[in-house]
Every structure is written in structure tokens, then in C-alpha cells.
């Protein structure tokens, strides 16, 4: 018997889960809050560690969507869910209600709002930007004129902005910013060949395949500098350049340097769009505020609500590769659940 599976979120995890469910006889409905699919991937230029073109990957994900049993609804803001007779009733802000046999939450993540780290002056000093804004500059080739005048530039990259930071309200490690900082430092060296790039870090967590190699490559082939120390404050000087204060913890000395551009490596935070859904179902959250599965190790895609599943970065920071794998796992769990439901 055909069932209805609702996927909330048309980012990489939502798209991949829909593709994986393509072979099932069920109807898959993706509810996307924006005008188009792709989530934050569509604003990204190249991906670590191999500089794959993000737009090509997105095209590939969108192409994999099965035409026979899937449907996408755009501009759908899901705000509430209820359990009803063994199903889930999904309420949209438009007033529409959709009955689902199973729901997959693939609501993704929000980026940390860098202005909360007031001492870095994002939103106040025009040459302090976020890693996400830098990707946008790569995508649109929209670097500020003062960086393109052919003269040598000094660029700072500040790691862990809003991550592993109790004062910022985030104790968790966003885990992907380290390698993003390395990747973007290399891209900056390629794009602005006369530039020198300095990464300020607490420690570098090169956990993934080829991450460590890329870190070595950044130093040996691209001359990227790494300084172990957190930045304490940034201030603008008269010509728009930025004064950065930090401590070099290896030499044990405070330092003050002048830069043309500072890039804040902002991490993942729980998606605000999932908050009202979680509240309506009293869905538990992890300590860091991401949606909590039934069991982190053996049931990472299942929730305490029958028929409700999680995939991708709504439950923890994940790379694109991990999100896609996670989405496939979630799809399998949904198919298993619907079979069990039929048998009862």
C-alpha cells in the first residue's frame, strides 16, 4: 500500500533521502521553506578537501530526484506537528495540513550569527566578514576593490567563532570550520597570489579523510601561516585596515597585527526553523540544542516519536559527505518503519 512520506527541508540531506526513497512505492513530498532546493550548499563555491564544485554536486543531487513518486513544494514553512491515529499531521504556516505516514526532518542548520562576538566587530567593520560571506565572494567573484588592486594583502582567518565558546552559548565543536579555514586559506592564496594568510586557531581538528594532507599542503605549497592563539579583539584603524590582538600560545607572547581582511570561521548552530516543530512534539534536544535521536550510536536517525526521523545537520554538525550518508540511512529506516506499520 502506498504511503505518504514528508521530508521537511530540501537541502542535501532532504534531496538525498528523497532519491533513496525513489525505489519505494511510497509518495515522497519535500516541503522546502525557500524558493529553491539546495539549502546552504547553493551558496558555497568549492568543497573541502578536494575543491569539488559545489554547484555540480547540487545539480547531481537534484538530478537524482525520482520523477515518478516525488514532489517538491516550495515556500512551505512547517511550524507544527501532531501525532494522530498512528500518523503525523504536518501544519504549514499557510494553514494547510498534510497527513503523513512518516516524516523526515532534514531542516539543516543555521550559521552562527557573528555579531554576537561583539569584540570582532562583524557588521561594524566592513572588512570583517564571515566564512559564508567569503564563499559568496568566490561564487559571485565579488571581492572588494581594495583587495583586487594587485598589491600584497594580509588576511586573517579566525577559527572557532561561536564554537566551543561558553560565553557565546555554544559548547559544541562545529568540526567543519577547521578544514573550511584551511580550504579557504588556500583559495585566497590562489585568488590573491600576493596575499599572506594567517590562521588563528585553538587546535586544528583534521578528523576526515585527506584533511590532514590539505593542512600540510596549505603550509608547504601555499605558505599559509598558522598561529595557535585565539583573537581577543579586532579594531578598525584609520584606513579601513584592521588591528587584531591575539596571543601566540606557542611563543607565550601577546601579539598585535594589521590586516586588510579578517574572515571569521563561523560554525553550525541548531536551525531555528526546527525549533517550533520540536516544541510541538516535545522532541528532546541534545545539550547543544540540536535535535536528539533515540540513541546516538545505534539509532541516530530515529526519534522518540513514532514515524518521525532525523537526517543531516539538524541533529549534529556534519560534512556534506556525512549528511548524504546519513540521509540514505534515514531512508532505509523509514522504509523499514513503513513495512512494520503495514504488518500491524
Amino acid at each position: 500500500m502506498n504511503k505518504t512520506i514528508v521530508i521537511v527541508g530540501g537541502g542535501p540531506a532532504g534531496l538525498e533521502a528523497a532519491a533513496a526513497l525513489g525505489s519505494s512505492p511510497h509518495h515522497v513530498l519535500i516541503l522546502e521553506k525557500e524558493h529553491n532546493t539546495g539549502g546552504k550548499l547553493k551558496n558555497w563555491h568549492h568543497l573541502f578537501p578536494n575543491f569539488a564544485d559545489a554547484s555540480e554536486i547540487l545539480k547531481s543531487l537534484e538530478k537524482s530526484l525520482p520523477l515518478n513518486n516525488s514532489e517538491i513544494k516550495y515556500d512551505c514553512d512547517v511550524f507544527k506537528m501532531e501525532q494522530m491515529d498512528g500518523n503525523l499531521l504536518v501544519s504549514l504556516k499557510s494553514g494547510e495540513k498534510i497527513k503523513a505516514d512518516a516524516v523526515l526532518l532534514a531542516t539543516g542548520f543555521d550559521l552562527f550569527d557573528a555579531y554576537k562576538k561583539e569584540e570582532y566587530g562583524h557588521g561594524i567593520y566592513k572588512n570583517v566578514i564571515t566564512s559564508s560571506e567569503l564563499e559568496g565572494m568566490f561564487v559571485n567573484n565579488s571581492f572588494p576593490d581594495q583587495l583586487k588592486d594587485g598589491l600584497p594583502k594580509k588576511i586573517a582567518m579566525v577559527h572557532c567563532v561561536g564554537s566551543r565558546d561558553k560565553k557565546a552559548g555554544n559548547m559544541h565543536c562545529s568540526k567543519l570550520c577547521c578544514i573550511t579555514g584551511v580550504k579557504q586559506a588556500i583559495e585566497l592564496r590562489k585568488y590573491l597570489s600576493k596575499s599572506s594568510v594567517y590562521n588563528f586557531y585553538m587546535d586544528l581538528r583534521m578528523y576526515g579523510q585527506h584533511f590532514e594532507e590539505l593542512y600540510q599542503e596549505a603550509q608547504e605549497d601555499y605558505g599559509v601561516n598558522f598561529i595557535r592563539g585565539r583573537v581577543s579583539e579586532i579594531a578598525e584603524i584609520s584606513d579601513g585596515k584592521l588591528q587584531v590582538k591575539a596571543e601566540d600560545t606557542l611563543s607565550g607572547r601577546p601579539m598585535k597585527m594589521i590586516f586588510d581582511l579578517v574572515v571569521l570561521l563561523i560554525g553550525m548552530t541548531p536551525a531555528t526553523s526546527a525549533a517550533s516543530i520540536a516544541q510541538s512534539l516535545a522532541l528532546p534536544k541534545s545539550g547543544s540544542g540540536f535535535l536528539a535521536p533515540v540513541h546516538q550510536h545505534i539509532s541516530a536517525n530515529e526519534t522518540c516519536i513514532p514515524g518521525l526521523f532525523l537526517a543531516g545537520t539538524c541533529r549534529e554538525p556534519l560534512s556534506l559527505q556525512e549528511s548524504i550518508t546519513d540521509a540514505r540511512a534515514a531512508a532505509l529506516k523509514i522504509i523499514e518503519w513503513l513495512k512494520l506499520k503495514d504488518n500491524h
Binding site: 555579531y115 561583539e118 562583524h122 557588521g123 561594524i124 567593520y125 566592513k126
Partner: peptide
């Protein structure tokens, strides 16, 4: 310097 950013803070 963006005054709007300061006002937000």
C-alpha cells in the same frame, strides 16, 4: 564603520 551595526548592539 557601519553605524547600523553599532546600533544593533
Amino acid at each position: 564603520m557601519e553605524q547600523e551595526g553599532k546600533k544593533r548592539i
